[in-house]
Amino acid sequence: MSRKEEKRKLREKFIEENGLIWLDNVTKVYSDGYPALNGVSLKIKRGEFVFITGDSGAGKTTLIELLFREIKANKGTVWVMGHNVAKLSRGKVAKFRRNLGIIFQDFRLLRNRNVYENVAFAQRIVETPGNQLRKNVPEILSTVGLPGKYKAYPDQLSGGEKQRVAIARALVNKPAILLADEPTGNLDPKTSWEIVKLLEEINKAGTTVIVITHDREIVNAMQKRVVTLKKGTIVSDEEEGEYIDEN
């Protein structure tokens, strides 16, 4: 067995024992002294669908940023797919992030590129061969329900369509984990539901999905695992949980 193969097997064993994501007593204090997370421990298994809720300043976005190594923890260890993310070298961070798909409330699409190019952009970054790219992009646009919108520019799309393009871009490289930071925050209730249902479909196909949200109705209706943060600590973590009020 090659050394690479051996490492991969050890990582798989680690994931089975500790989860695809494991925050081990993680504390994050920003340089201005603001304590965003305080001793948070959390395990998320492969294939789970998890809502992370909490009021503003609870530490939800900090948690997500720790997962894709945008920031580093001051204390504790963040394990993602068997990698201690704080120990990844600069060069390895890029390759590590290819395992994650990230979507945001404000979509973050490139306004000067059409739908096809916005999605193909992610494939070009990972150097997907041209023929594969030309097959993957239409396929994923079809999966997210945008088969006829290749040539449209972001400004010509509705909020829901923009978020679908963002999801397509996040998924086109087939990540193991999808991180969604308030994906329905800018959408009307009907479109929000469509997006959440789409995320559920993606989860059913095998992707681990973590969604930060304030949307009580969606959280309560979905009956998924709900992790609630308050002032940097986890106050509730329930399977088939419900949205917990701030007060």
Binding site: A94, R97, R108
Partner: peptide
Amino acid sequence: KEEITIMKYCGATDFF
């Protein structure tokens, strides 16, 4: 800046 941020999130290398 925005495009660079998205590139980083998608796993672009320093060279790219």
